[in-house]
């Protein structure tokens, strides 16, 4: 929560967005704000459309109507070059990692940097090691291919790649799913540390109640195609909405809450 959180400026502004496939409307007039420097946890049932909203924001899915502004630029109306400039300022961690399978870890991390910046080979190599170190991996994974990595390593490398250009916003799609609880906890800490040191704004789709408790500044809830609530954990816990009650006061939630108190 470093770097100017006080001003509450809106980094991502989603207004009235409708997205559907055929006659299946997934997002039905969704509104959402993400503020600079916060970690927003985005929750919702499986298949509720969390990934769909994330993909719409980053421009991978067309919207039927609505408006999305990122860093003050209206992405629906932006020219190609304006859009490209914005794309440079975010990093994305996809649900499955989406590392390039025919490139080594080193090449995966260098790929976006080479494309946008003209740096010396020595600096490129040193930065790979520095970035890997920041996500808790050592240099020995450099020459490995993605198929030779474990699930947790894949997530870390994918996070390092998302951070390769020092973005202002990172989108994380279920970063801790498929990790063991200890690994997931470490990953949460990692995200919190990186957020603090790099001053990131983090949009995190997650199901992990521990992550929601420990690292998220705010939580937004998607159900029935709408964002039904957004606010701090206390707001969620106090809410009377049945879905929120079930989600945050269920058995697993109580267990995760009990550990903390």
């Amino acid at each position: 929560m470093a770097r100017g959180n006080g001003s509450k400026d809106v980094v991502i502004e989603v207004r009235d967005v409708v997205v559907g496939f055929g006659d299946h409307v997934v997002l039905d007039h969704v509104d959402l704000d993400v503020y600079r420097g916060e970690i927003l946890g985005f929750v919702g049932g499986s298949g509720a459309g969390k990934s769909v909203l994330m993909r719409s924001i980053i421009g991978l899915l067309p919207m039927r109507s609505g408006r999305i502004k990122v860093l003050g630029v209206d992405m629906t109306a932006a020219s190609d070059s304006a859009r490209r400039a914005i794309e440079r300022r975010w990093g994305v961690l996809f649900q499955q990692g989406a590392l390039f399978s025919s490139l080594t870890v080193r090449e995966n991390l260098q790929f976006p940097v080479r494309e946008y910046l003209n740096l010396s080979p020595r600096l490129l190599d040193e930065l790979v090691i520095a970035k890997l170190d920041m996500v808790g991996l050592d240099a020995s994974v450099c020459e490995k291919f993605p198929s030779e990595l474990s699930g947790g390593m894949t997530k870390r490398v994918a996070l390092a790649r998302a951070l390769a250009l020092d973005p202002e916003i990172v989108f994380l799609d279920e970063p801790t799913s498929g990790l063991d609880p200890i690994g997931a906890g470490e990953f949460d800490n990692l995200i919190a540390t990186l957020q603090r040191t790099l001053g990131l704004t983090v949009f995190m789709v997650t199901h992990d109640l521990d992550s929601l408790h420990t690292v998220c500044d705010r939580i937004a809830v998607l159900a029935d195609g709408k964002v039904i609530a957004a606010g701090a954990m206390e707001v969620m816990l106090a809410s009377k909405h049945p879905w929120l009650q079930a989600y945050f006061h269920g058995k697993r939630s109580r267990a995760s809450h009990a550990e903390r108190t």
């Binding site: 470093a2 190599d125 090691i129 170190d133 920041m134 020995s140 450099c142 020459e143 603090r196």
Partner: peptide, 22 residues
């Protein structure tokens, strides 16, 4: 600055050159 110090400390902790040959 304080924020920059945190970032710098992060990089300061990177293990010294294990530059893998390639």
């Amino acid at each position: 600055k304080e924020d920059d110090r945190a970032l710098y400390d992060e990089l300061h902790a990177v293990k010294p050159d294990q530059a893998s040959p390639h």
